[in-house]
Design a binder for these strands. Structure first.
Lengths: 226, 226
DNA sequence: GTTTATTGGTAGTTTTACTATCGATTCGAG
DNA sequence: CTCGAATCGATAGTAAAACTACCAATAAAC
């Protein structure tokens, strides 16, 4: 007997579900490693194929192009973050406590959850930090949005906005704050590592507690004004 | 007699100063138009050369690659925004008023200033909104940062942080707030246009006043707590 | 146990991202 | 007005990226 848990993602993102086959799983697993190593721009299906001892054409059977693969990986992370927020706030009453848990998940879901699968979530998180904005900063956003590529991200933002509304129903920008928290987390981790003068926080040895403090100060500073 | 005003930008960004020659100016002028039209990913030096009835090799004489051209264009805009903030806050005493002026420039410098040059700042602003994150989200950030590619952006952020400190010297995250305001402005304009569920504001017929209100609420909400 | 569908592998094409070379023109200094 | 340097255009070529079409092995279905 074997238990297999599948991550349910938008079917339009792939040509053939990579979670169904051995090669498909290898594509996911090693694309994460390779994108982290060389960056998304230098990443190609040919290099990936070489790494997994397969061929370019085989990879193209699963994904139309590398952009869709990137969106797929990001959706994987976002879906997982959403689950993490839902799961960890389930029996919590206090909205403030809920928001703290959400912020903690936003900053780094991989630290707080262990997965049973072939995906190295720690490396995936690095990809999210470095490459996430590229998912929707393209000339094809509107078409891709119509195809539902960003449903996962939008519904994640909606969940966070809902918690924000619980903390303060009168706050006029719950959705904007939600997306800003999501974007800020990645930005400030990235700034701390590469352009430190653009932030006040430090990220030492992957310790992201200061990012969490920053986001909490932001969120509660805006939501709770006496 | 002719007056020529030059925008002083990092010399490492180009091979030959495009502001010195007719072709160079055409490269700047039409690269802005073309990137806006087809997006940075699809933009190539060949297409640009065709548009200006020149050759690929000629364009390569000015810029090593399209990434450096993009950074050059963005630095142009940032430099200009910095000037606009300095100029418009010169005789203002009240720090709060200064910050309002800065936010107004962050949201859209092109609306508030007319330039004498061959650059269409309105189109350039669209590029900033859509493509700015790509400037530093690359595997080469650290090297490029060492070469001073992002000095303009960092010094712009510093100026804004300075104003933030004047408004509230006790606020613990002035630099983070400054970069967040810069990033947020672009993000929420982009969201309003392409992924509206990620924001609460609307951008109707290029009216960016709601973005300004959002940023003001953010900034003052965090800086002024009674 | 043969047919059929699915999978993986080979071999191309077109486009991108450059580099090198060579004339032709232009533009300023003497 | 002329010489020389700078600038530009034209052509050609290369390596890699981004795909496509087609073929072969094999597993599943009847």
């Amino acid at each position: 007997m074997s238990i297999s848990i599948q991550m349910q993602l938008n079917e339009r993102l792939y040509l053939k579900n990579p979670q169904d086959t051995k090669l498909g799983k290898k594509i996911i697993q090693y694309s994460i490693i390779l994108i982290d190593e060389i960056g998304f721009e230098a990443f190609t299906f040919k290099k990936l194929a070489e790494r997994i001892s397969s061929t370019e054409a085989s990879v193209y059977r699963y994904f139309e192009n590398k952009h869709r693969l990137l969106v797929y990986l990001l959706c994987w992370y976002w879906e997982w973050m959403k689950f993490s927020i839902d799961y960890n706030t389930m029996n919590i009453e206090d909205p403030k406590q809920k928001l703290k848990i959400a912020i903690s998940a936003i900053v780094d879901t991989s630290r707080r959850n262990t997965s049973i699968q072939f995906v190295d979530e720690d490396v995936l998180h690095r990809i999210v930090v470095a490459e996430a904005t590229k998912a929707y900063h393209t000339k094809q956003v509107d078409e891709e949005n119509k195809e539902g590529f960003f449903l996962t991200y939008k519904s994640l933002a909606k969940r966070i906005a809902k918690i924000i509304k619980e903390v303060n129903p009168d706050y006029p920008y719950p959705r904007a704050l939600a997306s800003t928290l999501l974007e800020m987390a990645n930005n400030h981790i990235y700034f701390a590592q590469h352009l430190p003068s653009l932030t006040d926080i430090e990220v030492k040895e992957d310790d992201l507690s200061q990012v969490e403090e920053l986001l909490e100060d932001f969120a509660f500073g805006l939501l709770i004004r006496d």
